[in-house]
Design a protein around this nucleic acid. Structure first.
Lengths: 111, 111
DNA sequence: AGACGTATTACGACTGTCGTAGTATCTTAA
DNA sequence: TTAAGATACTACGACAGTCGTAATACGTCT
């Protein structure tokens, strides 16, 4: 039961970028959005999330900039770049192919 | 383009077990079957395949036994165990959940 | 003689995820 | 008032699965 983090692996970047397509955001908010959008089916680990940000900034898919919370506390925001958008769209295309491949090997309970 | 082996990752075992559900087989044949069933969309790496066999035998999902090719050459066959069948069915269930999660973050080109 | 298909093994590198832990501030409830 | 819980991260090392590269060996086809 539960989700296979081994499959999500390699799609965490895509998930994060998807949410950044709407608007810039920051770690904690992204984490919340993933929870709510999946009805708690997937709860990303903090370390996974923040290391994804670091990696994607290095790859040029996102850019960070400093921001502030309502109460004045510092927060690091991330926005998606053009390159990140292209990458995201590629991953969406790739997903369809990958899904098709795997589903050739999935059986329903009756068989 | 092409398949993300990072997503297939963690489903290679499932793919192999699926083929072993039909009949016992061996490395090279499994490799061929994956190619043909996916119309060359997914070509598993030999090292990935054989290390999956080793891992799954250690986990009790498959059993190996010596066999022979038509020409008398030795070949290592693998058959799926009851435990392997259960594992396979669990992974099939898990796949549905995982797929649903990812698809919350996949957009069609129009958007 | 050499290329290609069959069939497998060995070894080390890489990458993304995870476990654990630590820091710091603010709000809320006992 | 004091502790718990939510917010918002960062650091570090371990682990597992995949991949690159290479080697072996035999058979068949050209």
């Amino acid at each position: 039961m539960g989700i296979s983090s081994d499959v999500i692996r390699g799609y965490n970047d895509t998930i994060i970028l998807c949410l950044l397509m709407d608007e810039p955001s920051y770690g904690y908010e992204i984490s919340r959005k993933i929870r709510t959008r999946t009805a708690d089916a997937y709860i990303i680990k903090e370390t996974t999330l923040y290391s994804a940000f670091t990696r994607m900034e290095k790859n040029g898919y996102v850019e960070s900039y400093p921001g502030f919370a309502e109460n004045g506390k510092r927060r690091t925001y991330y926005r998606i770049t053009e390159s990140g958008k292209r990458y995201y769209r590629e991953k969406c295309e790739e997903w369809k192919l990958t899904k098709d491949v795997i589903e050739h090997f999935i059986r329903e309970e009756n068989s």
